[in-house]
Each structure stands twice: as C-alpha cells, then as structure tokens.
Design a protein around this nucleic acid. Structure first.
Lengths: 340, 340
DNA sequence: TTGAAAGCGCTACCAT
DNA sequence: ATGGTAGCGCTTTCAA
C-alpha cells in the first residue's frame, strides 16, 4: 500500500520560480512576460530570455494556483451521468463546446454517475466553476443551485423538463413529443394506442415524459393509452409481436425511430400489416426512418442550438444578478410518412 | 466591458476560516474534522460544532487550494475532440468512468476540439492530472507525453491505432475491421470491392485505418479496392446507386452498419440485387443489421472493457516507473449473414 | 485536544 | 523596466 516515495515522478514540475532563476529575472517578470501583461513594459531581450527559459524547462503554468490567486475560473462544467446517445445530442454537445471555447471558456465534462442531486452539486462546487450547465439526468434541487452559487458559480443553467428555482432553465419538453405523436394518431382515427417504454432505465429521463405527453393528448378524445415495455433486442420484440393481437392496439408510438424500426420489423415478420392493422410512429427523425418500408412517420425534434446556449451562459456570467431566464427550446412537429 | 464589480456574486464563498470562526475553533481543527484525520483525536462536542458550522455556511472545500497544497490531484483526464458516437463507445465511456470513480479518481472530460497535439498537451498539463487517457482523435506526440509527465502526470495512456513513445498504449486496430471484411469478401470470390468512405471528417480516425486494412487484405489476392466517398444522406446514396453499375463493383465494405443500411436501401431501390449482384458488409454489429432484409453481414468489434482500462490506469499511477505496457485490445470477427 | 504558522504556485500591487 | 512581496484556501508539522 506504499502510496509513493517523496519524488512522485522523478523531478517535480518546474515552476515559474525555476523559469525566473534560469532566466535571471524575478518571478513577477516571468508572469508579466508569459501573460503578455499590457500594463507593464518589458524589454525584448528579457522577454526572449524568459521565453527561452520556459521552453527549455518545459514550463506549464499551474491552473489551480492561477485560479486560486485570481479568485475565479473560466470553467464551464457540464455534468453528465451517461454520455447521451444519438446524433442529436452528440451534435449539440459538440456545438456547445465549440461555441464556449470561442468565448474563452474552458469546457469540462464531469462524470457524475450514481451521485444524488445534492451530493453532486457539492462535488461540482468544489471545482469552483464559473458556470454549470446541468443536463437533466441529475435532478438539481434549489438547494443544489444555492450551494453552487455560494461557491461562486455565476450561472447555473438546467437543461431538462422542469425549471429549478434560482437557475436559468432551458426547458426541453419531452412531453411535447408524445403529445404530437398521439394527437396525430387520434386525428387519423386510432383509438387504442400503445406507447413503447424502453426497459433501459437510462432512457427514463426521456421516455417517462413522452408517455405523459401521450396521455395528455389522448385525454378527452376517447382514445386509450397503453404503455408497452420493450427491451432493445430482437427476441423480446418478436415475442411482443407474437401476442400483439391480444393487446388489441390499432396504433403505437414507439418511443423513437430505433425502437420503431425494431418493432416494425417484428410486426411485419408476424404478418401484421403496417399501417393497415397497426400504425407506427417514431421520434427523432433519424435517417433510418426514411429508409424503412413503409417509410416511418416520426416526430422531428428541433434541438436547441449549441451556440445559443453558449451565448446564454456568457450573458448569465456577465450579469449574475439577472433574473433567471426561461426558454422553451424544443420544438417538435410531426412528419407524416407512410407508417401511420 | 466592465467585467465585474469587486464582489462577483454578492458574498464570497465561505472558507474554512469562516467555519472555524463560527465554530470558535482554529482552521486546523476544521480541517481535521472535515477530513476525518485519523492521526488526531478531536472531542465529539467540537466535531459536532464544526460540522454544524460548515453545514450552516454551506461550506464546500476548494479543490484547487487543496490540490495545490497536496502537490497532486486524483484527476484522470479524458480529452475528447468529439463525443464519439455509437452505442459501443457510449458504453465504453460509461464503464470507464464508473470503474475509475470506484477507484477514487475524479474523471474529467476535457473538450479539446480544434487543438493541435502539443497545444492540447499543454492545456491538459495545466490541470495537473494524475493520469491522461487520450482517445486517439488528437494525435499525441512523444513531446506531448513528455510535457504531461514533467507536469506530474504519472500515467499517460493512448487509445488508438499507434503506440506513442513513453506512453502506455491500448491499441485499437481499426485496420483489422477492414481486413476482416475484405478477407471474407475475397474468400467468397468477389474481385472488385468498394470501400465506403464517409465524408464526415470526424470519422477519418476510424475510416482511414479501415480502408488501409481493406487494402492489406486485398494485396496479393488479385482483388481490387476502390474507395467510394459517401455522405450520410438519402440523395447522395441514391445518386451513387444510380451510377453503381458504372463502378463495376461486385462487393462493398460499407464502413459500418449505418452506412450499409443507407447504401443497401439505395441499391435495392435502384434494382440492384444484394447479394447477387453486389455483396454488402457492414461493421459494428448493430441491432439494425439483423433487422434488414437481407440480413446484414458485419464485422463485430469487441471493445476493450472499461474496467480493464481503469485497472491499467490505477496500476500505472501506482508505479509510474513501469515500462510502457502495450495491449492490443480490439478483436474483430466477421459475422456472416445474408448480404454477402 | 487544539492552535499557530509555513508554504503549495501564481499574479498584482507598490517600490525602486 | 524590473523586483519584492502579500495573499488566494488549504493541510500539516510542531508547540502548547
């Protein structure tokens, strides 16, 4: 269990003092040169000497020491429990990171798998980020927001179904997806509508609100909503298709396009006509939906643009006093193709 | 441009001195209590007072100050240029993060989009991570490794096609995927084999080695390899299918299952028989391949297990002097179905 | 059982 | 144009 000898890696990392010594100047001068401090004039000869010394030693400034001294960081923390899957979210994350870096922030994703809300907030606060953009998988409470703000976070932004007190909110109303899908099916005369619920618990964050939206759209129309659990595998899908007629469903909202593809194949293999006997609607408008036969009706989701979010972060950081903004940032609209 | 008043967020974050003052003890005592320091005995009454004071103030320790004092961190840095897409990599990242957290590391993903290798290494070194696991999108040079080590990183591990001097390597030999696919096609008598090259530059990291592997497998067999660029959209696929017969290909390795699906649909719509006229092989063994008709032949990839990598990280951190390990960690094998 | 104080690496003020 | 130095928040000897 010997954790380490005194010299962790042979030589300790060079400090600005080492650079100063080698260049024959003071640590202050080193700092001025390497940070191009405008308020002070340093001779070109000195500049060069400092630069060369830093280069020779492989000097890299110590971010922790710097931010300790400065009293703040430029770190934007993106806590993630799971890497969100799917092209929509990949693109969104890429855009957001890119835009924030252009605004001179340091973007850090912090894996917070299996932490509860307030525990997570505390862990994040230890890093003293200037802003936190919390994807809704981790439930942030008003207390969590308060902890972050007291620790110096100038902006806390949640990205999820609900607004949290004290935080800016980008409301991604997943329920709207279910609403659109079911409204469409009802309009086309369907009355007993299944809603596929993935067994993968990591998708609850999306699937539960989508089901709720489905129920809302059905309410008062005489249509009935039937949740149908399904694992993303061939066998369970075949098994489900085998007892499909017992369920008596004339339509199904399949959670998303991938589940829709899985289900549609199983239904077709079981001799059930789509859309004749059962209509199928997916969501996310993936390319694969257009490649299926019949082509898949789907709910298209317009995700928030990463650049917009980056601008909101920057605005909030510059004006921490501002009232929490709330933006409803997910438009969903149905695309009618052949499967419904 | 006024960047901020003196008091960034109203009140500055509470420090251990504030806790000490409120509890009527010294900062040392606060530290002992909150860290459960074993080497020192504190009365229960004092413990409680300190805990209550910390709670009341919403005190959260300052990670930067702590690690500055300690001289090291427990941070494992995972630089990512793009979020890697696909279920394989999502699962891998989840596993890795989980396993590292169990080993008491803090896992931080650092967005390094658009940085060149040495610039990136410097940026990472500023954070003084104890270990860096570099996914191969960013080319890490021997100099970059050296910078990281001098800054105190006890383990540098690359995950990619090549080994880098001084770093441990998990070799993910993407070329093997192309080799397997083409060897299979050659064996089945195909002679003019297209290799789909996604136009999305973010996939070069995967697609270029896969093409190279395809070439290796064809060498000396009399078979010919023809790179075929393709965008992941319907129209370009249809356009490609339209001039398919001019290409004179009797087989195609479609980069992965998603591109294979896209291409197969387009070929079928153009009246080209699969596999009769052209055989198609995908990769990644996604569920969707089994849902296609004909069922898609594919190259299954056994990704490294996150837990194994976490253990390698821990081993390397505990014994920084150890010789760089090199593990070849991607097995690929062909699964023959109906499309080839 | 508790407190005083040094020092981690850095920057910004004030001298020179 | 450059140097001296205080102090950011924390932990850890050493003394009491």
């Amino acid at each position: 269990m010997s954790h380490s000898p005194k010299h962790p890696a042979g030589h300790p990392a060079p400090t600005s003092a080492d650079v100063a010594r080698l260049a024959g100047v003071s640590r202050a001068t080193v700092s001025y040169v390497l940070n191009n401090t405008a308020a002070v004039r340093i001779s070109d000869r000195t500049r060069r000497r400092v630069r060369e010394a830093a280069e020779e030693l492989g000097y890299v400034p110590h971010a922790a020491a710097r931010s300790l001294r400065a009293g703040h960081t430029r770190m934007v923390l993106l806590p993630t429990a799971h890497v969100p899957v799917g092209p929509l979210y990949s693109r969104f994350f890429d855009e957001l990171q890119w835009a924030l870096r252009r605004l001179d922030y340091t973007v850090v994703q912090y894996g917070s798998l299996g932490m509860d809300g307030d525990e997570a907030a505390r862990a994040w606060a230890e890093l003293r980020p200037v802003a936190v953009v919390a994807f809704g998988e981790i439930a942030l409470t008003p207390q969590g927001v308060e902890v972050l703000k007291r620790s110096g976070a100038r902006a806390v932004i949640t990205l999820g179904a609900h607004q949290v007190e004290g935080a800016h909110a980008l409301v991604l109303d997943q329920a709207e997806v279910g609403r659109q899908a079911v409204a469409h099916l009802v309009e086309r005369g369907r009355r007993r509508i299944g809603v596929i619920m993935p067994e993968d618990r990591r998708l609850d964050f999306f699937s539960v609100p989508r089901l709720e939206g489905a129920r809302q759209a059905a309410a008062g129309t005489g249509a009935e909503i039937v949740p149908v659990p399904l694992r993303h595998e061939e066998e369970p899908a075949a098994e489900l298709a085998g007892r499909w007629r017992d369920l008596g469903l004339d339509a199904v909202f399949a959670y998303n396009d991938e589940y829709a593809m899985l289900l549609m194949r199983a239904l077709q293999d079981a001799g059930i006509d789509v859309p004749g006997e059962t209509a199928v609607v997916g969501a996310d408008d993936l390319l694969l939906g257009r490649l299926l036969r019949p082509r898949l009706s789907t709910v298209q989701i317009d995700m928030v643009i990463g650049r917009h979010l980056a601008e909101l972060v920057d605005r909030a950081v510059r004006d921490p006093g501002g009232a929490p903004e709330r933006h409803d940032l997910m438009a969903a609209r149905l695309i009618h193709r052949e499967s419904s």
